[in-house]
């Protein structure tokens, strides 16, 4: 029998993720990663990376896709059946949307006052660069592992994502294609998959 606590935990974790997502889907990825992978150990780094890949290729907002998928995986691995997984995905998706729903409907009433609010502008001025850093951290965490078991940090490569030099070459090629040639995420993911099939 599945422990109902997992649903409560999923709900609370995704409620917090929904509440603290400023600046779009990528900012949300860093929150999902630190909550779901680091804090609760519900998923491994590589399982999380796979989910990000699938969420980016599937239509719909990346944040919703990611919450639905993570909710399904977490509940299914705790309860073992598809039905439990579906309940988990519903829990996570409702929880991630609920804070924005309440907040948007609240500020809609004060919108004309809110629009030129200096405090709001000030807060966003501080949050925007922080969100940039958080997204950078999400990428770094998928590349290297830092653990603080001793007095000095232990740094290692995330072997599931970067097992060999070929994977670093794929990473470099994708970065160049996306940064300098503006290639979209879907062609890059498809190319990565085809090359993976050919190389490995």
């Amino acid at each position: 029998m599945i422990d109902p606590v997992i649903f409560l935990q999923l709900f609370l974790v995704f409620l917090i993720i929904g509440l603290f997502t400023f600046g779009g889907g990528y900012a949300m990825l860093s929150l999902i990663q630190t909550q779901v992978v680091s804090a609760h150990s519900w998923l491994t780094e590589s399982a999380f990376t796979d989910i990000v890949a699938i969420s980016q290729m599937t239509p719909g907002p990346v944040g919703i896709n990611c919450a639905t998928y993570v909710g399904y995986e977490v509940a299914r691995s705790a309860g073992g059946s598809h039905i439990v997984g579906i309940l988990g995905s519903m829990t996570a998706t409702v929880a991630v949307v609920l804070p924005s729903f309440l907040i948007v409907l609240t500020i809609v009433r004060f919108y004309t006052k809110f629009k030129d609010n200096k405090i709001f502008e000030g807060v966003m001025g501080w949050l925007r660069p922080a969100v940039v850093g958080l997204i950078g951290a999400a990428a770094v965490i998928l590349m290297i592992n830092v653990s603080w078991s001793g007095p000095s940090p232990d740094v290692s490569v995330v072997a599931d994502n970067f097992p060999d030099w070929t994977s670093w070459a794929l990473f470099a090629a994708a970065t160049i294609a996306s940064l300098f040639f503006k290639v979209g995420p879907i062609p890059i993911i498809i190319a990565g998959g085809v090359l993976g099939l050919l190389i490995y």
Binding site: D50, V52, A53, G136, L179, V194, L195
Partner: peptide, 18 residues
Amino acid sequence: RIFKGIRPVVVSLILVPM
């Protein structure tokens, strides 16, 4: 094999928007 090729490119798809 497909996901072994996809994982490293996903990391750059997070890095580049940043």
